[in-house]
């Protein structure tokens, strides 16, 4: 299960968070844990360079893209490699939607589009689409080529 996709700005404020199968009372804990993880490790990291960590039996793969940091959390079959795949797609889709690694403003300008992309990529904790061109068409309701 892909437990969470979380996108935060450089100050640690949450821009997008989607949890799947995480009890509501644990979400706050995850949110602060991820933000701290990012604050501790993402300084000076290049765009889209993926970092990895594990917490108990849960894996976290995360990266920075422009002004935002993106975290994906998973367990069981969504181990570090599957998460890396998911994060790669998310990074590409966000970059594609914004035309470049986004500033926070640009990210928020394209917020609707990004939500659609995430909806195509992860659906209730399962990885659904991984091809950026296909995702680009799907969010406009165009069939894939």
């Amino acid at each position: 299960m892909l437990l969470a996709v979380l996108i935060a700005n450089s100050e640690g404020n949450i821009l997008v968070e989607r949890f799947n199968g995480v009890p509501a009372e644990e979400r706050l804990h995850w949110r602060s844990f991820l933000v701290k993880l990012g604050a501790d490790n993402l300084g000076g990291v290049k765009n889209e360079d993926q970092l990895v960590a594990c917490h108990k039996s849960v894996y976290i793969v995360y990266s920075v893209l422009g002004d935002v940091s993106i975290f994906v959390v998973g367990k069981d079959e969504y181990d570090e490699l599957a998460l890396a795949e998911a994060l790669f797609v998310i990074n590409t889709a966000v970059k594609d939607a914004c035309g470049k690694p986004p500033t926070e403003r640009l990210f928020l300008d394209k917020y609707g589009k990004i939500c659609l992309c995430l909806d195509e990529i992860v659906w209730k904790g399962l990885l659904e689409n991984t091809d950026k061109d296909r995702i680009k068409r799907l969010i406009r309701l165009k069939p894939p080529i």
């Binding site: 700005n9 100050e11 404020n13 821009l15 500033t103 926070e104 403003r105 928020l108 300008d109």
Partner: peptide, 21 residues
């Protein structure tokens, strides 16, 4: 929890960027 976002982007230009939200 996110606060309403006001962020200055000094590196790129001096213009103050407001969040659309």
């Amino acid at each position: 929890m996110a606060q309403p976002l006001v962020k200055k982007d000094d590196d790129r230009d001096d213009e103050v960027e407001y969040s659309p939200f």
